[in-house]
Design a binder for these strands. Sequence first.
DNA 1: GGGGAGAGATGCCGC
DNA 2: GCGGCATTTCTCCCC
Lengths: 246, 246
Amino acid sequence: MQDYHDRLLADLKKSMPIVIGCHCAVSYSGRAESYLDYNDCILIIKSDKTILVHQTTGNNPINYMKPGTTYTLNVADKRLLIHAEHRQLKEYMDIHVTNIYYYNAHPLAPGSTLILEGTEKDMVEAIMNKPESIEEGFKPVSTEEHTKYGFIDVFGNDTNGTLCVVECKRYTGDFKAVDQLRRYVEKIKDAKGINTVRGILACPSITPNALTMLQDFGFTHVALTPPKRLAKYNKAQTSLGDFHKS
Amino acid sequence: MQDYHDRLLADLKKSMPIVIGCHCAVSYSGRAESYLDYNDCILIIKSDKTILVHQTTGNNPINYMKPGTTYTLNVADKRLLIHAEHRQLKEYMDIHVTNIYYYNAHPLAPGSTLILEGTEKDMVEAIMNKPESIEEGFKPVSTEEHTKYGFIDVFGNDTNGTLCVVECKRYTGDFKAVDQLRRYVEKIKDAKGINTVRGILACPSITPNALTMLQDFGFTHVALTPPKRLAKYNKAQTSLGDFHKS
DNA sequence: GGGGAGAGATGCCGC
DNA sequence: GCGGCATTTCTCCCC
């Protein structure tokens, strides 16, 4: 265990990304408090001193600390004690390691940037490029309009010149989406001193209860699905395999 | 690369948790579309066939697939091609690996359960145990009251017998919290056919804009911080070190 | 750094 | 499975 202590200390100093398969217990104190009994885990300490404690299932770490954590190491009772502390965030984590199955530290170059398409922002762009997807005669005026009660996705006029607030969701519309739309509509009415402002929720689908609430407020649901532009790009290639070989 | 192909195939068959430090490119298609150019990554494939693609910084994986993903492997042009597909979710991911820095697969026992304290649920319990923390004379009636517009954290009466809806947030109160509270209050008014229902937002702090909105609706903010019971437990021990050695 | 809101959110519980 | 909602949410953008 003393060997691992020395290696970990050196690798932390070099800001090396570290992966450890081990048997350990974890306690955390900060925004909340947690305790994890001794069990098998995968520990990942990244170059930015983020630490993730992963178990053998699930998407999310069972425990973690944010970037900028500092580490203090000790060996006692044949155990490696890792004290991870984040002073600014007033958080700490203690890991007691009894057994290490594997230990890997290897220099890794900083990552590439992910290209992501099909987000809500892409929905907004699609509406700006094709306003009739909201309804015939819709004329968008602005996007990301800032009000004191939040940011409005798309702001525009319908064919009658009535002001329209459009809120986009890439997923099934719910209460929260209707709440948000309502907040914007009310604030616009208040700010402009007018009584008639339409609320339009653009999303692929909507829950029955949210639809009821939407209609209670006199708002409209428009079925819209976020575009996935990379799909088109991939289709333009003869095949996915060829695309990647390039 | 053929050796790694064979090892990975065998380890996947055994549902072994696998960690790979490598140079790779990743493309994803499903709920959205993404492409990540060749770069250094840590790949983690868990026992439940979750895959995480981590870079050297940050809390979250840059790419991932959920539990239940199936894998198809190939070697071409000295590259290991990992095709990960989730048929139910209609998602897939392609990883092209050009270089492997380390490869680890080791049987890990299923994890322990995390004990977590200081959640919103703990706030609700604390209020039930000490109703005067909301205000003098407050009498809680129920928790998790189900309405058609959502679940009410705490429902009760003030010293005048006026109905009170209490919404708890463990973090700084914001617009969304006020929206939620408002939705419950309105629904209760509607359901009970009464005009006077008080809304109380219990949270450690509140943003200035949210406070304005709260007050516009005639609601109240009560400063409450989520309890952290493990902190007390740890204090009861002579020291944290002793606690862990037990 | 705080406020506001999206996320390929995830995860939990209830119906 | 969907619905509703918390999360040690995380992350990004903008002031």
